[in-house]
Design a protein around this nucleic acid. Structure first.
Length: 771
DNA sequence: CGTACTAGTCTTTTT
DNA sequence: GACTAGTACG
């Protein structure tokens, strides 16, 4: 009896087919990770492959860690020799070694989204690009897409230079790369692209890695982009022992450049490929699978497959519709508490999944109120928090003085009386002399323009120099503590009297323990090593199953995870699928959302609850959305409840024929919607009571916001449209005015939009135009 | 130069 | 509604 006997036939085949290209189409819950780990083990202990020759690429660091751990258990020895990592960390590792061959310093820093935006802001200023008409974000997105397709600035110019915006972006792209190069920095996309560039430019380096990685495995292959594909293609080109694992139905990262063709066309690129389908699901009940299959069936152009399970039974899917998102949150929190009390599940076996991070807030409030322990994943990455970034900026500056962004971030944090004008002048000097910002600071007394401010710069430079020399004999955590001490960062926080100062200090303490942890787990801890590890962690990587808490996260973050009890919240057309995809004329957008729904449903092992609300506040607007079309794709017999319309609580209010019809025209999927939507009084909604400690500041801020809105007085009589008129809205397109409700300061207008559904908005806000 | 307030924007999803 | 960049003031 060997470990391989526990695998089913298909899995066994996938494990033992070690030579040549292999495509494993692994449905959700089909034991994909098991196959991968067993395959690695098989390579080592049956095929005698040196662990050193194996590369396994996973999607997150967490997956990589788990895989290594599991392989470690099976093979016992040599597992640490295997490269198990994400695309990004694998590339960093390669670039740290060889990037000097394409003109960068191996001590490069990695820019996150914030840093990118800062750079782009300067680029726009320099190129005199008006950021009102062309947003930094837009440019960066264009650049990111280009990089994902391996299109450099020159090629971009060739392809897009002929129109106004295209040429502006092309120029910004070129300048942006120049600034990054000057700062010796790479952004996330560069990590992949530069590695490909390196491999293409230097045959020796490529050959070196081709020889090393005789066996390559890629997990979540459906989410690879063109650059990642090319990287893998190059690496595998010599020995062609490439095994990719994925599920086209779970491709949900198109917005990040993922190219679903990579998996769909694998057999075209590798005609000799062996294709293995894993269709037996070991995770969910038949009911859950039936629901998932019923939904995904509506997509076109997928690889044919059908999941099945031996877990025959299973409770039906619970569908619950509520009047408001508050009630929805209340129900979920209650239901979890109920399950835990009843011994049905532990907190840690429950997860609430939603489409957008913003939905977490309401749920969170309710969980606090009910005293249900929870963890929100992803909202703000730990390392993206202000105080953490500040401390990291100190470390970056100590590590690599060429990183202008980091230096500027902390030059006046805590306050040292160094203002914008001084920074601008120093930068001018730096540009003039072709040196880095930090080097310019060191020559502060040479800069004529700054006058007396030079006296403020000197202590800063002295301090940084001192940190650098301390680095020689200090441990990392000592260095961090020293920085906090010398700069008075924590002290300033304590004295600031800011509302969340305590949280921030907690975060800093957590950072210190992460530094300590890094020192303990690495043989040769270095500052660069720590910074690089930190630059590439996703929030999901921090999850450990040990603490017993309900997890709240987006559907995207949930990929690859499984829970006994799953709640899918906010299942409303306009939320999920999001209105962007509904409005889009590209049908592929809805299909991507549907795959996301498929991912969500298949996370559930035992029990699945679907919830939605009739009324929801989104970005200050009350929306009335019909039940998600995806819910309607699930056969009613799989649900435990009667059809939705019998659960309706609110009577029909409007009887105007035309209005009623227009609702039905725009909402073919939702039979009961017209009546549901007619609830006229959003004000009647009771907001949940808040716990005093947690929410005091929130209330204060909210009140401010309302005040700001009401300052815009729009007389009711001034509206040039009335009930029944057709109007146009900037974002939602055309619609029919259903109702106008005069308020003390501004009228509330209810409009049924043809595409986007019904919205209630302030007239002064909405800027509706009669058509 | 720092602060306090205001106006405008918004990402849906993340390595 | 919340966050942020920009502006007017001290």
């Amino acid at each position: 009896m060997s470990i391989y006997d526990t695998l089913n036939d298909k899995q066994k085949q996938a494990v033992m087919q070690t030579e040549g290209p292999v495509l494993i189409l692994a449905g959700a819950g089909s034991g994909k990770t098991r196959v991968l780990t067993h395959r690695v083990a098989y390579l080592i202990d049956r095929e005698g492959v040196d662990p050193y020759r194996i590369l396994a690429i996973t999607f997150t660091n967490k997956a990589a860690g788990e895989m290594r751990e599991r392989v470690d258990k099976i093979v016992g020895f040599g597992a640490e020799q295997i490269w198990v990592s994400t695309f990004h960390s694998a590339c960093v590792r390669i670039l740290r070694r060889y990037i000097d061959r394409i003109g960068f310093d191996t001590h490069f820093t990695i820019y996150d989204t914030d840093d990118q935006k800062g750079v782009m802001k300067e680029v726009c200023k320099k190129l005199q690009i008006d950021t009102k008409t062309l947003k930094e974000r837009t440019i960066l997105n264009a650049i990111s897409s280009a990089k994902n397709e391996l299109i450099g600035p020159a090629d971009y110019e060739k392809q897009n230079g002929f129109d106004y915006n295209g040429s502006r972006i092309a120029k910004a792209y070129a300048e942006y790369q120049a600034v990054l190069h000057k700062n010796n920095a790479l952004d996330f996309d560069d990590l992949i692209m530069k590695t490909v560039e390196l491999f293409r430019a230097d045959a020796d380096v490529l050959n070196n890695y081709q020889e090393r990685f005789r066996y390559i495995m890629v997990d979540e292959y459906q989410d690879t982009n063109t650059a990642q594909f090319e990287l893998i293609r190059l690496l595998a080109d010599k020995y062609r022992n490439l095994c990719v694992v994925g599920d086209d139905d779970q491709s949900i990262y198109k917005f990040r450049g993922a190219n679903i063709r990579n998996i769909l066309d694998f057999e075209k690129i590798y005609p000799e490929a062996c294709v293995i389908k894993l269709e037996q699901n070991y995770r969910s009940t038949q009911v859950v699978l039936d629901a998932a299959n019923a939904v995904i069936r509506n997509n076109t152009g997928r690889k044919d497959k059908a999941l099945w399970t031996e877990k025959k039974d299973g409770s039906r899917i619970h569908l619950r519709q509520f009047d408001t998102a508050y009630e929805e949150a209340e129900y979920i929190a209650d239901d979890v508490a109920h399950k835990v009390r009843g011994g049905i599940a532990r907190y840690g076996e429950c997860a609430v999944l939603y489409r957008t991070n913003a939905q977490a807030r309401l749920l969170e409030e309710r969980f606090i109120m009910e005293g249900v322990p929870y963890d929100v994943i992803g909202a703000t990455n730990f390392y993206a928090r202000r105080e953490i970034k500040d401390v990291l900026a100190y470390l970056k500056t100590i590590d690599n003085g060429r990183d202008d962004v980091a230096v500027k971030r902390i030059i006046n944090v805590p306050k040292r009386g160094i203002g914008i004008s001084t920074i601008v002048r120093v930068q001018a000097y730096a540009d003039e002399h072709q040196i880095s910002f930090y080097d310019a600071l060191r020559e502060a007394d040479q800069i004529a323009t700054i006058g007396k401010s030079a006296s403020k710069l000197k202590p800063f430079v002295m301090m940084m120099q001192a940190f650098r020399s301390k680095q020689e004999f200090f441990g990392l955590s000592e260095l961090v503590k020293d920085i906090l001490e010398v700069t008075g960062y924590v002290k300033e926080l304590e004295e600031s009297g800011e509302e969340d100062a305590a949280d921030r200090i907690d975060n800093i303490d957590e950072l210190i323990s992460k530094v300590t942890d890094y020192e303990e787990t690495h043989d040769e801890p270095t500052l660069s090593g720590f910074l690089e590890e930190v630059a590439l962690v996703a929030d999901i990587d921090r999850v450990d199953g040990d603490d017993d808490r309900v997890l709240l996260m987006t559907l995207h973050s949930a990929k690859g995870l499984e829970f006994s009890q799953v709640y899918l919240a906010g299942l409303e057309d306009g939320i999920f699928p999001g209105y962007m995809s509904i409005m889009s004329d590209d049908p592929m957008e809805i299909e991507e959302e549907r795959r996301l729904a498929y991912v969500g449903i298949t996370r559930a092992k035992d029990d699945l609850t679907l919830t939605c609300a009739r009324q929801r506040m989104i970005r200050g607007e009350t929306q009335y959305n019909p039940v998600s079309r995806f819910v309607k794709e699930i056969p009613a017999e799989l649900m435990d409840d009667k059809p939705l319309e019998t659960r309706r609580r609110n009577p029909v209010v409007y009887d105007e024929d035309s209005v009623e019809k227009s609702i039905f025209r725009s909402k073919p999927f939702s039979a009961g919607f017209g009546a549901d939507a007619a609830k006229p009084k959003p004000k009647a909604v009771a907001r949940p009571k808040r716990t005093a400690m947690e929410n005091q500041p929130y209330i204060a801020k909210a009140a401010q916001g309302v005040g700001a809105v009401s300052i815009t007085p729009v007389g009711t009589g001034k509206l040039d449209y009335g009930v029944g008129d057709r109007v146009r809205h900037m974002r939602y397109g055309e619609g029919t005015v259903l109702k106008i409700e005069p308020g003390p300061r501004d009228s509330q207008v209810t409009v049924v939009f043809d595409e986007a559904g019904q919205k209630i908005m302030y007239a002064g806000f909405a800027k509706l135009a009669k058509i």
